[in-house]
Amino acid sequence: MALLEVNALDAFYGDFQALFGVSLKVEEGQIVSVIGANGAGKSTLLQSIAGLIKSAPDMIAFDGAPIGAMRAPQLVRQGIALIPEGRRLFSSLSVGENLLVGGQVGRPGPWTLDRVFDLFPNLKHRKDQRSTSLSGGEQQMVAFGRALMTNPRLLLCDELSLGLAPIVVKEIFARLPEIVREGVTVVIVEQDIVQALSASSHVYCLQEGRVTLGGPPAQLSREAIKAAYFGV
């Protein structure tokens, strides 16, 4: 049984429909990526899974249970965490406090303050700094660590690479295998296709709210991806 199953998901902003019957599957222990152009609906998809956007109960199943109608805080308790697009750290909290907020739900698991500092050693001596004083890459690490602190089974990452230098992106992506080894299943949303394809074992492409392609990266031709991505 897949850890996450999305079945014919529709999503709306008022009268505007952003997702049309999106279906996908994520097996436990996988890294799955979702790619697509600006406005394709990637963030909407992740927000629906994380419970920020309500759906019909059966449209999303987590570990076999329908969760479409649950709200974000309940899903965090179930083990779903989302690193939001643009990091969105708590600006009046210190780095350490940002991480501690993540730990506040008290889900048992391997991730503690010390483990996060092991994963991102740069953060350790910046613990008492205000989060806004960090560089973009360090902020992304805090956002990453903050989500890990909830000890998720499923980690949703919305554009980790946004606005970061390639070398920093690489550094962050290099941490993914270690996280998966700890039993976390990862979904990454990316515009950086190369990064996404090389990191994941399965990729889905979204275009204008619909899934246009899905499969293991190795089996997908450049042309197929291009067509699915741009719709040409």
Binding site: A50, G51, L52, R71, A72, P73, V76, R77, A81, L82, P84, R88, F90, S91, S92, L93, E97, N98, L100, V101, G102, Q104, V105, R107, R146, A147, T150
Partner: peptide
């Protein structure tokens, strides 16, 4: 305190606070 931290986090960004499991 943890409660105070939750207060401040919620005040900063209530949506992300929910993503951290806080019932705003």
């Amino acid at each position: 305190t943890a409660l105070g931290r939750a207060f401040r986090a919620t005040s900063d960004d209530p949506v992300v606070a929910q993503l951290m499991g806080l019932e705003t």
